[in-house]
Write a protein that binds this DNA or RNA. Sequence first.
DNA 1: GCCCTGCTTGAAACCGCTTTGAACGCTCAG
DNA 2: CTGAGCGTTCAAAGCGGTTTCAAGCAGGGC
Lengths: 342, 342
Amino acid sequence: MNLKELAQKLNLSPTTVSRALNGYPEVNAATRDRILAAAKRHNYRPNTRAIRLATGRAMAVGHVFPGATKNEIMNPVFADFIAGAGEVYAANGYDMLLSVVSDEAEAQTYRDLKSRGAVDGVIVHAVRTNDERIQSLLDLGLPFVSHGRATGVDLPYSWVDVNNRRAFLRATEFLLDLGHSRIALVNGLEGMGFALRRRSGYVDALSARGVDADPALMSSDAMTEHSGFTAASAMLDRPDPPTAFVAASMLSGMGVRRAIEARGLKMGRDVSVIIFDDELSYLRNGEDLPIFTATRSSVREAGRLAAQMLLDLIADPDTAPRNKLLEADLILGQSTGPAPRK
Amino acid sequence: MNLKELAQKLNLSPTTVSRALNGYPEVNAATRDRILAAAKRHNYRPNTRAIRLATGRAMAVGHVFPGATKNEIMNPVFADFIAGAGEVYAANGYDMLLSVVSDEAEAQTYRDLKSRGAVDGVIVHAVRTNDERIQSLLDLGLPFVSHGRATGVDLPYSWVDVNNRRAFLRATEFLLDLGHSRIALVNGLEGMGFALRRRSGYVDALSARGVDADPALMSSDAMTEHSGFTAASAMLDRPDPPTAFVAASMLSGMGVRRAIEARGLKMGRDVSVIIFDDELSYLRNGEDLPIFTATRSSVREAGRLAAQMLLDLIADPDTAPRNKLLEADLILGQSTGPAPRK
DNA sequence: GCCCTGCTTGAAACCGCTTTGAACGCTCAG
DNA sequence: CTGAGCGTTCAAAGCGGTTTCAAGCAGGGC
């Protein structure tokens, strides 16, 4: 069922039918009702391909992920971010196009998406320090919003990010308030800007209280359970072990917990742990009562915000770049307590 | 730069240029070279929207995921499956369209994708027992491949699945061989067909050796760390605790391990654990040496296979449905050992 | 009675490509 | 010398919508 057929059934021209369906005002109310009813009855949906060609808009948004190489890590945050963004697209009649590409192919992918006219804009993921993608997307003239800021890039562009520095600052302060002074950081890979900012929040909180950050209590690695376990184990086995940890993710935190328990210690009593919780739907921090005390910020919500921002940008490309810095909540769980008396 | 402009520059008709670029044989070799050179020089890319309208093919594949409701769990397997499928699409010039929808909206989503002509086929995820989607997709005439079989549906359709029954049968047999007889099952939600088949493999292996499956040693829940911990804790606190566990996922297994260690026991010595390992890139089972003994089958590979199967089906829709049952490897890690002497 | 307006509707061009059917220039067999 | 056949090229008709521009018609002011 296409427009022409529908118009014939109604004894109207395709023009009028098109206008009625798209809500143009110059259609007689009675005619419009008749058309809408018929469209519904015949389950008519305009052909996306034709709309796209005629209007020159793709009505689609691209998400480009690094991760094509066989063993590269797909970001665990991916699924929930996509779910959030997808809600917004669906509500606005946009399609979501996904490309999983190798790092080298990424620039070319953007260029193709643009010149093929496959999307109206893109969301940039896994932003790195000094990320060249920002500049090249600006050059391309393809609207985009990045998830995370690119440290070291001083250009006007739109982004959605979490105040990672503040989150880790608050987490560290909270542990200091509980009397801890040997506080360890189990950080993500510091090639990523967000990890750097987390570290700076941690370091600043310590030095504000006159505590020197101990390099032996700072680690940086991929945010997996295994690396959390390894890092925490090494630290706990030192002569002057930490009494508290700030961990970069739910998975790292689980590794830290295991290291603690493996030494016959109890998390929350002997050793405190605060994690950063992205609220991933398959990695919940407990059911009603949180297991970990955590700085929490929903990735899904970030996905929604980024998507909405991008659609606004597409609707009006000349609008000034917008930024949204999300604050993480500090929620109390069972993994923290006062520093044990010596 | 579009086809017409390029043709004008070359003093040729769009017809000839189009044919040359698409490799049709009836173009003079010299002309073709001239055209290819010019296309390259001007960085010409045919407009995707126009190609799609003209050819009637979408050159795109849809992936439809349930999970739109705020708190619904996004399948953790999602990201890696997509990464695998994406490789195949990219290599074949297809785009990947993602829809995250609420359960109720799913049927309508398929119908829309079809009538809008947005995709040439779809991959069906999270297949349930007696899944009505199979029938409705067959009715729609939209080519599709499902990831997992729909238990209870006896229709001809294409799928890619893991031999879950055999995997759990082998895992259980392996534990029996090690002398275990109190073997527990920490299963996923049994509304999903794959969980049912896993259970049947487990039960059959036991009864083949004359061991009755003990209902108190079988649990079924979402595959999270927390639920693995809870289920294993309860079982270990019984008067006749299990000496071995078969767990449905990496995350469940981590929960089981925690329950074991919380009781001062050592995994691999006092209590054995076998997990099912999907080889998720962000949830690796150890680095070089596997932590868990596991039945292993790569979700990423399944994504590749399903995607390829779908493209084949799209190329020739009249081909008979194809099925691919992947066998899981049984790999030895550090989490299993002989049953402790009484 | 005439003309201008406002409200509806329609014809046709257009988006950028593919593809069908026709035409052109040559060679070569009859 | 004619006509069939081949290799190349092109004009034009789609694909299924949107959008511009024109036109039909009724009502109202003069």
